[in-house]
Amino acid sequence: MLTEVTAIRYVTPLREGGSLPGIVEADDLGTYVMKFTGAGQGRKTLVAEVVCGRLGRRLGLRVPDLVRIQLDPVIGLSEPDQEVQELLKASGGLNLGMDYLPGSLGFDPLAFEVGAEEAGRVVWFDALIGNVDRSWRNPNMLVWHGQLWLIDHGATMIWHHGWRGLDKAAGKPYDASEHVLAPFAPDVAAAAEALAPLITEELLTEVVADVPDEWLTDEPGFDGPDAVRRAYVEVLLERAATVGARVTLGERAGEEPSKAPEWLRVWVDGKASK
């Protein structure tokens, strides 16, 4: 189970992305990036953060540790931004926190080289969880102490926004042609060979057990939180077995030209010609 802490001071909002996370200090003396249940994306964003964050760590990827954070909205009374105050008021009770990495920098593919092995593991992991948000537009990675860290997994497992399509989710391909690590020749085959055997029913059951019951209640078509957890286990277990063979790399899947900026396309072409 995730460690539970209580927020004691709201430090500042982070105005990147649509969920308006904030930095808070907690009663364990830790500092966390807090994601709120009252944000517009809803609780499924937090469920995705828990499932994917915990799973990534179990696979040996660098993902900031997660905690449950209890919030009393009163801590934000001095915040001058009305939008932030409304968000805090709507998020009283249980929320999610990620360990804050002080001094970290946003990943820049021109400034930080990633090896083919590590790139392959990240791309395979993103294929497994159906991550649509690790593109050159929004890398959602940080460099901290010279190492790559993965953050922001709220836009993953799109299938859980409409469970009726669950039967197709396990076999859905993954287009990584605009993945921010695509230029680093990710070795997806090696990653699949190394990581797929680690995705067991036991591992997934342990991971989804960390999702609080209150974020899984009243899900249409399911008889309680445990039934929802079982659905996550089933689709991820089936997907892990074959998703590595359904990753598109190197060229776009459709006829539409790349929307990548000129600097990135020139850089990719230059690397490919070497």
Rank of each mutant, 00 (worst) to 15 (best):
E49Q: 10
V51Y: 13
C52Y: 07
C52I: 10
G53H: 02
R54G: 11
R57Y: 08
R58G: 12
L59E: 03
L59Q: 01
G60A: 06
L61I: 08
R62N: 15
V63A: 04
V63M: 05
P64G: 06
P64D: 08
P64E: 06
D65R: 10
V67D: 13
P73M: 09
V74H: 07
I75P: 04
L77E: 15
S78G: 11
P80E: 06
P80D: 02
D81V: 13
Q82C: 07
Q82H: 08
Q82R: 08
E83K: 14
Q85V: 15
Q85Y: 13
Q85K: 15
E86H: 12
L87H: 11
A90Q: 08
G93F: 03
G93C: 07
L94V: 15
N95E: 06
N95M: 14
N95V: 09
L96I: 05
G97P: 06
G97W: 03
M98N: 06
Y100K: 03
Y100C: 14
L101K: 03
G103D: 03
S104R: 10
L105H: 13
F107G: 13
D108L: 07
D108V: 13
P109V: 00
L110I: 13
A111I: 14
A111W: 15
E113V: 12
V114I: 11
V114N: 02
V114M: 09
A116I: 06
E118I: 09
E118T: 10
A119F: 00
G120K: 04
R121S: 10
V122S: 06
V122R: 03
V123E: 04
V123L: 08
W124R: 00
D126I: 05
D126E: 02
A127R: 01
A127K: 06
L128V: 07
L128K: 04
I129L: 15
G130L: 00
G130F: 00
G130Y: 00
D133Q: 04
R134P: 04
R134E: 00
S135I: 05
S135M: 04
S135E: 02
W136H: 13
W136I: 11
W136S: 13
W136C: 10
R137V: 12
M141F: 05
L142I: 02
V143D: 02
V143I: 14
W144Y: 14
G146V: 10
L148P: 12
L150Q: 05
I151Q: 09
I151W: 07
I151K: 05
D152Y: 15
D152Q: 14
H153S: 12
H153G: 07
T156C: 11
T156I: 08
I158L: 05
I158V: 07
W159F: 07
W159G: 06
H161E: 07
H161M: 09
H161F: 10
G165Q: 13
L166Y: 12
L166Q: 12
D167R: 12
K168W: 12
K168F: 12
A169W: 01
G171E: 00
K172T: 14
K172F: 14
P173F: 05
D175K: 00
A176G: 00
A176F: 00
A176S: 00
S177K: 02
A182H: 13
A182W: 13
A182Q: 15
P183Y: 02
A185S: 12
P186I: 01
P186Y: 01
V188L: 12
A189H: 15
A190S: 15
A190V: 14
